[in-house]
Design a binder for these strands. Structure first.
Lengths: 223, 223
DNA sequence: CCACAATACATAGCAACGCTATGCTTTGAT
DNA sequence: ATCAAAGCATAGCGTTGCTATGTATTGTGG
C-alpha cells in the first residue's frame, strides 16, 4: 500500500495576515465580510476556507486572538508583595484591554464564547484565583473564602463594567466605579477596609481609560 | 388650498404580530431574517418597511420591547418597608427577566442599545435610585452615598452576571453570587453587615433561575 | 530522478440576504 | 363622488457566505 503524499504547505503568514486585517477592520469599524476581507490582500476568498473553514471559523479565531491579547496584557501585570493590590491591577488591566479593543472584546463574548483552545480563558481566570490564594495565605482574606467563587465575582464586576461601557450605555468615566466596587467585594472577603481601599486604589491606578467622554449617561444625547 | 388627504391607516395589530413573531423566533433560536419573519403571516416583506423602516428598525423595536418587558417585571416588585430588601428584589427581578428571555436580553445590549424612547431604560435605573434614596432616608446608607452612583454599581453587578450567564461562559448556578455581591456593595454603602445580608437574602430569594445546569464552568464541556 | 497524489488556491456560480422600485388597492377628507 | 395619499404585494438589484470546478504546486515513494 502507499502512504499519502504531501503537497503545498499552508503558509502561516497568510493566516495571520487575514487575522490582523480582520482585527484592524474591526477597529476601524469597516464591515468585515468575506470579500472585503480578502480585497487587496492578493489572496482569494478560498483562503478563508482553507485556513478557517469559513467565516464562522474566522470569528472563532478572532475570539481566540482576543483572549490571547488579554492573557498577554494580564501577564504584563507585575506581581507585588500586596496581593490585593495585584487583584485590582489585574482588574484594571482587564478593563484597559477591553477598552483598547472594544470591538474585539465584543466579538469575544457574543456567540457564546466557544473556543478551540480554552487555555487562554482558563489562564485568565486562574491568574485571579492565584492572587486570591496569596491574599488568603497572607491573612488578608478569610479562610472560608472560596478562591474560584471570589475570582468569578471579581470577573463579573470587570465584565459588567467593560460590557456596559464598551457597548454604549455607560460613559467611560464610569470605569472609576471599579475601585470602590472591588474594595467592597474584597472587604466582604475579610480584608480590613482602610487597608483594602489603599491597596485597591494603588492597583487600580488612574481609571484605565481616563479620557474625556463622548456619551451622556443613560438617556444618551442624540448625537 | 387643500390639506393632504388621508389614506389607509396602519394596523397596529400587524406591528405587534411581527414583533411577537420575531421575539418567538428569537426564543426558539430560528434565524430572524426579513423573509423568514414574514413567511406564513400573510403579510409581505414590505410590511417590515412600512412599520419599522427596515430590519434595523425591527431590531430597535425589539430592544424597546425588551426594555418594556423589563420595566413591567420590575414594576411587579412590591415595595416593602425594607429598602435594602427591595434593592435585592429588583436585582433578582432583573436577572430573572434576563434569563427568561436570554436572546431578547442579548439583543437589548448589542448595537449600543440605541432606543427611540429611552424612557423605559431610564425608569429602570431610576427605580433603583429611588430605593437607594429610601435606604438613605431610613439611615441604612451613609449620607455621602450618591444614589445614582450606587444604582449604577448595582446595575453593573446585575448586568455582569446576566451577561456572563446568558451568553454562555458561566453556569446558571453562578446567579447565586448575586446575593453576596450585593451584600458587599450595600455594606460598603454603610449598611450594617448582618442586617444587610438578611435583607438581601430575603429580597434575592431563591436564585432567579435555580435550575439544574447544562454547562461546565469555564472550560466548557465540548457538548 | 521523476511521476504521482494530495494539498493550496483562483474562478465562477448558487441560494439567501436586506433593500428599493413599481404598480395595484384601499381609504378618508373634500 | 373624487382623488391624492398611504398600505402593501411583486419583482428585481447588489451583496452576502459558501461550494463546485479547474489549475498550480510540492513532498515523497518507486
Amino acid at each position: 500500500m502507499y502512504c499519502g503524499a504531501m503537497a503545498r504547505t499552508k503558509d502561516p503568514a497568510v493566516r495571520s495576515l487575514l487575522l490582523d486585517r480582520a482585527a484592524q477592520m474591526l477597529r476601524t469599524r469597516q464591515p468585515v465580510t468575506l470579500r472585503t476581507l480578502v480585497a487587496g490582500t492578493g489572496v482569494s476568498t478560498m483562503a478563508v476556507y482553507t485556513y478557517f473553514g469559513g467565516m464562522d471559523g474566522l470569528w472563532k479565531a478572532l475570539r481566540q486572538e482576543g483572549f490571547t491579547r488579554l492573557a498577554t496584557r494580564l501577564a504584563a501585570v507585575k506581581i507585588s508583595a500586596d496581593p490585593v493590590r495585584d487583584l485590582a491591577a489585574l482588574g484594571a488591566a482587564y478593563l484597559a484591554n477591553a477598552l483598547e479593543n472594544p470591538d474585539l472584546y465584543r466579538v469575544m463574548f457574543d456567540a457564546g464564547f466557544d473556543l478551540e483552545d480554552a487555555g487562554a480563558a482558563d489562564e485568565t481566570l486562574h491568574r485571579l484565583v492565584r492572587s486570591i490564594e496569596r491574599a488568603k495565605a497572607s491573612g488578608r482574606f478569610r479562610d472560608e473564602v472560596d478562591p474560584l467563587e471570589l475570582a468569578t465575582q471579581s470577573w463579573t464586576i470587570g465584565h459588567g463594567l467593560a460590557s456596559l461601557v464598551a457597548t454604549g450605555p455607560l460613559p467611560h468615566q464610569t470605569l472609576a466605579h471599579g475601585a470602590p466596587m472591588l474594595t467592597a467585594l474584597f472587604t466582604s472577603a475579610g480584608d480590613e477596609p482602610a487597608r483594602c481601599r489603599q491597596s485597591v486604589e494603588q492597583g487600580w491606578g488612574r481609571p484605565p481609560g481616563a479620557v474625556a467622554d463622548r456619551r451622556a449617561v443613560v438617556r444618551g444625547d442624540p448625537a
